[in-house]
């Protein structure tokens, strides 16, 4: 049997919001360690990697490893039926063809059950090589979301340049150009507002704005986002999910034609 309970269903609601732009279906791998998902978008430009550790759940039981193929829009619809204060329990039997979502109100006077059919997916699993990145930037996630939104008005692509001075985002298009520079913040008490650059070598890479604007749908999950970059390899855009895990987005760069 598989059973995973989260007192804060809002976490799972936010996770679905963070993946539903990119994925239409995905296999959730459940094991003793927790729930993992790895899936590419349809165009194979980006990859989403989600990890929810079993010890982050309020109750977790997984008697045998399960691979559950799920429709992301359907799962998203179901999670929209949960109130943010509800507790959520995911439940499936061994060799399941359905998964059940149970939502309980805080005083347990309302219990809702939604059963969703699982789908058979033959998804390709990719090996992500261990990489030491040339630049790792931590910055407020809302600021990153805002920059992605603002710069995407100017062009389809955004260049991210990281140096010891800080991080610079730029876009160019028919209307003109846009540049936003963020300096590394001094030691600050408010870590959520900090911009921290760890740089071994400067990096300059160009990425599709459309994908970045999908990644920033994860903003409600975490006050900070971590961007890891090296020349000519995919960007890693990572959000911590409370004490339970993380979501990482990998985005293939655009290169000169």
């Amino acid at each position: 049997m598989f059973e995973a309970r989260l007192v804060q269903s809002v976490i799972l609601k936010k996770v679905l919001e963070a993946i539903k732009d990119l994925l239409t279906e995905a296999t959730f791998e459940c094991s003793d360690c927790g729930i993992q998902l790895q899936a590419m978008d349809n165009a194979h430009v980006s990859l989403v990697s989600l990890n929810l550790r079993s010890d982050g759940f309020d109750k977790y039981r997984c008697d045998r490893n399960l691979s559950m193929g799920m429709s992301v829009p359907c799962m998203s619809k179901i999670l929209r039926c949960a109130s943010s204060e509800d507790t959520v329990t995911l439940r499936a039997w061994d060799n399941p063809d359905t998964i059940v979502f149970v939502f309980e109100s805080p005083n347990r006077d309302k219990i809702s059950e939604y059963e969703m059919k699982l789908i058979n997916l033959d998804q390709e699993h990719l090996g992500i090589p261990e990489t030491l990145y040339s630049c790792v930037v931590k910055m407020p996630s809302q600021e990153f979301a805002r920059i992605c939104r603002d710069l995407s008005q100017f062009g389809d692509a955004m260049t991210i340049a990281c140096s010891k001075e800080g991080i610079k985002f730029s876009a160019a298009g028919d209307y003109g150009t846009a540049n936003v520079k963020l300096a590394q913040t001094a030691e600050t008490e408010n870590q959520e507002e900090a911009v921290v650059v760890e740089m071994k070598e400067p990096v300059k890479l160009t990425f599709s704005c459309r994908y970045l604007n999908s990644f920033v749908k994860a903003t409600p999950l975490c006050a900070q986002v971590q961007l890891s970059m090296s020349a000519e390899v995919p960007l890693v855009c990572e959000y911590q999910i409370g004490e339970i895990g993380h979501i990482r987005y990998y985005l293939a760069p655009k290169i000169d034609d």
Binding site: M40, H44, V45, S46, L47, E124, H125, L126, G127, I128, P129, A157, T206, S208, V233, P234, Y250, L251, A252, P253, K254, I255, D256, D257
Partner: peptide, 14 residues
Amino acid sequence: NTKQTSIMTFFKKS
């Protein structure tokens, strides 16, 4: 002009 690369160029099937 830039062209979009695929994530599969960088990460191989495992």
